[in-house]
Write a protein that binds this DNA or RNA. Sequence first.
DNA 1: GAATGCAAGATTTGCGAAAATCTGTTGATT
DNA 2: AATCAACAGATTTTCGCAAATCTTGCATTC
Lengths: 229, 229
Amino acid sequence: MSKTAKSMGEQAHAMLRHQIISGAFAPEQPLRLAQLQERFGVGFSPLREALTRLTAEGLVTSEPMRGFRVAPLSQEDLRDTMETRAFVETEALRRSIRRGDDDWEARIVSSLHALGRQFERSGPDQPESLAALEERHRDFHFALVSASGSRRLEQIIDSLYVGSVRYRMPSLSNRQSTPARDLMAEHGAIADAALARDEALATCLLDEHYRLTAEMLSMAPAAPLGRTG
Amino acid sequence: MSKTAKSMGEQAHAMLRHQIISGAFAPEQPLRLAQLQERFGVGFSPLREALTRLTAEGLVTSEPMRGFRVAPLSQEDLRDTMETRAFVETEALRRSIRRGDDDWEARIVSSLHALGRQFERSGPDQPESLAALEERHRDFHFALVSASGSRRLEQIIDSLYVGSVRYRMPSLSNRQSTPARDLMAEHGAIADAALARDEALATCLLDEHYRLTAEMLSMAPAAPLGRTG
DNA sequence: GAATGCAAGATTTGCGAAAATCTGTTGATT
DNA sequence: AATCAACAGATTTTCGCAAATCTTGCATTC
């Protein structure tokens, strides 16, 4: 079961990606090669490849001869990203409701169940269960749109998810910032409407879900946006 | 005016990108480092960076320890890409019609004019004017949606354009493969509807434009799709 | 006193060689 | 005859150093 060690490039990519997403580096912070080499114990070449890939993913910015920085965050980008997610994912959900088979339904039921379990288990401040919760949440939303039949739509949804997860991470840790919101009920309602093949209701609920999320995140960002921190 | 020589990485990226888009490499063809090093006269590091970036753009695929290949083409991907373009760009056009100012209108008029001029000038088989025509075509479509106000939408449109241009390139060269189609008239009609702020008509025409393009490209691909060539 | 130019240090970028990995072939074994 | 192991060649991946470039601090000049 011990898989052969992945390439240094992939390792570096995964580690850096995780640390940026979880907020270990502040937005706009310079990412110096020497510093990263010491931190991760890999040479320049794999690091450069990792940073180039992260730049393409939008998590890192780069300027020629001036190195790499953690990509900035902003209220404007948060709003844009969530609106675009809503636009694209409602379409993918619509298509999935039309084309989804038994396996699609099963994926929704199973991922919703797993999300609920993790939600119960997740206490206030365990970084471990926090990452698990985020993964379950992601799985559920991907399951919803997993029968769209469009590879391109899936890729777009994936990249928009990456662009939004950094905003959600800090707010997940302090649970009190979700005042009058029953997340599991929202997710359950979306799943029910999808399984009932009610396009209008399901897409409307999903749209509202993202609107609420965007509002909540822009209200009380745990880390001030647009600062170098 | 002689700009300082760009970094080797950027040069390699631009050259490889151009050659892949213009079809100098067959789909699925392996891209060997040694071969590319000889062809472009740059070392391993810049080549690797270029290939990594192209992989993120979807023009190249990579498998760990097995190197890079030119990304495949397929009827299925062509259809998916054009449908997704239509879906995303009609929305961006809708928003642009609502929000577009005088500059937006000016960009449409000017890019349409330039496209028309280049269209007249473009003879049957000049690779130079062919590239220019493609660029004008691209500029016009980007101008149409340039007032959407959404950075994310712009990024998506850009990446989908890259994904579709390889299919159009071969068919542009043999003009007779566009039998009963007046491309300039189509573009003109779209521009008119946009400038008249007629959302329904403009988006409908744009959608139809992409549907026709997809049909035409899947009918008579100059190079057979899905073959190693 | 403020602005400019210069030098030293820090950082990114590029190159070639060494190490690790894969592929195809040959030869031995069942 | 078929299967498997090992070997040789080719290819990718990684590392360390040299070159190019940027930044910072300081002295000089107006």
